[in-house]
């Protein structure tokens, strides 16, 4: 019998392929290692990220689902809750007690109830509604608050870039 983390990841992968949520594709990079996934997230409609397809990678710990995975966008991103190297900073990816930003209630935190699908949906909603209290990218948070037009412009440029369209 394979490890419990592996079995759960396989179950989630199966679930995601059978019943994919809209605008999200995710799966292991290769079928020999289920602990590294690639995901493609489409920007939510009606937001400045609309139309973009954003690649990201998820790395799962050996004790998944007891500990949360790490998620990192592999394309350029400009967003208050995404570090400039692409790492995503949202509460669902942190266990209670591990609080880099100090603003989240424990209700939204990681627990085995969460799943890859919920993480990706949270990321989609994060793209739609940035939380500018979290300072993963301070510049982006500031711009989001104070100069929304400029922010939208940068977002649109990133969207075009992910689609391979020159600026």
């Amino acid at each position: 019998m394979a490890g419990s983390a592996l079995r759960r990841l396989m179950a989630e992968y199966k679930q995601l392929t059978l019943n994919p949520p809209e605008g999200i594709i995710a799966g292991p990079v290769n079928e020999e290692n289920f602990f590294e996934w690639e995901a493609l997230i489409t920007g939510p409609e009606g937001t400045c990220f609309e139309g973009g397809v954003f690649p990201a990678k998820l790395v799962f710990p050996p004790d998944y689902p007891l500990s949360p995975p790490k998620m990192q966008f592999t394309c350029e991103m400009f967003h208050p809750n995404i570090y400039s190297d692409g790492r995503v900073c949202i509460s669902i990816l942190h266990a209670p007690g591990d609080d880099p930003m100090g603003y989240e209630s424990s209700a939204e935190r990681w627990s085995p109830v969460q799943s890859v699908e919920k993480i990706l949906l949270s990321v989609v909603s994060m793209l739609a509604e940035p939380n500018d209290e979290s300072g993963a990218n301070v510049d982006a948070a500031k711009m989001w608050r104070e100069n929304r037009d400029e922010f939208n412009k940068i977002a649109q440029r990133i969207v075009r870039r992910t689609l391979g369209i020159p600026n």
Partner: peptide, 17 residues
Amino acid sequence: EVRKRRLQHFQRQLEQQ
């Protein structure tokens, strides 16, 4: 307000799915 909207958005997603 932001968080509320975020939550609602998340719920919409869940419902759609």
